[in-house]
């Protein structure tokens, strides 16, 4: 029985697939979405403890998805993941209510650690009041 249900959103299948495999092996139940639109559908269909979202995606991008989730799914913490590391993006993401901001390529243990912290601090929902 998986101890965590994680939604993994990235437009790169090549990245999603191995990440999901590795996380699953570590007792994290993983559902993957190849786009922001797909992620929103999955969020409606089922419950997730946390979402790990790539910032740069075609269509609904990471920041937009974050914005909508703060509105529709305020109880699901979001960890942003991106190859485009800049302070501005990080600050923007945090202001929109992301739990944390990690840079690709990310160390798996670091990611898991961040996700666990996000899940264990249910009071940390800064976006909910703002939204």
């Amino acid at each position: 029985m998986a101890d965590l249900r994680l939604l993994l959103v990235d437009d790169e299948v090549e990245f999603l697939e191995p990440m999901a495999a590795r996380l699953t092996r570590r007792n994290v139940s993983c559902v993957t979405a190849g786009s922001g639109e797909e992620a929103l559908k999955l969020l409606v269909a089922g419950h997730f403890d946390c979402a790990v979202v790539d910032v740069k995606m075609p269509g609904i991008d990471g920041l937009e998805l974050l914005r909508r989730m703060r509105w529709n799914h305020p109880d699901v913490p979001v960890v942003l993941l991106t190859g485009h590391a800049s302070i501005e993006l990080g600050v923007q993401g945090m202001e929109l209510g992301a739990f944390d901001y990690l840079m690709k390529p990310v160390d798996l243990d670091e990611l898991l650690d961040t996700v666990r912290r996000a899940v264990q601090q249910p009071t940390m929902r800064p976006g909910r009041d703002n939204a």
């Binding site: 990245f15 191995p18 495999a21 485009h84 590391a85 690709k104």
Partner: peptide, 27 residues
């Protein structure tokens, strides 16, 4: 800033794929 994303994404994929390989060997 421009290339960081373009390079970090493939790096992330390589890292993830390698991680899977490591997992397989471990198992």
């Amino acid at each position: 800033a421009g290339v960081a994303h373009e390079i970090n994404n493939p790096l992330a994929i390589i890292q993830a794929q390698a991680g899977v390989l490591a997992d397989i060997v471990e198992d």
